[in-house]
Amino acid sequence: MEIVLAILTGLLFAAGLYLMLHRGIVKLIIGIMMLSYATNLFIFLIARITRGVPAIINQAKEVLTPPFADPIPQALILTAIVIGFGIQAFVIVLIRKVYKVTGTSDMEKLNSTETID
């Protein structure tokens, strides 16, 4: 399973980056989102995955006994997802603005800041 998921993660990374390399401004944001899935999966998988046992202490017990899913990456992912959400929402609105202001969605045409004049 890990191999499959690892390959999938790799593919997600690749696809995210690939989309970010496109000229279209919408693909940029889709790429960013995909990259964030990939990152989350990566963190999730870095600790060995455990099927089906969440890190929730049973009503009858006082401590968590193995096997259980490593809660730390999960907590990290939660934070990362939320931060990612904030940034993605901002970027979505930003590209909408960029498009509205510049009238182009071609990243290669957005280079007025780097001319020498």
Partner: peptide
């Protein structure tokens, strides 16, 4: 306009950096 263009690149590259 310039601010928008600049920030878009800024944000995009920083997203990569955070990744």
């Amino acid at each position: 306009r310039q601010q928008f263009e600049g920030s878009l690149k800024y944000v995009a590259i920083n997203v990569l950096s955070s990744t």
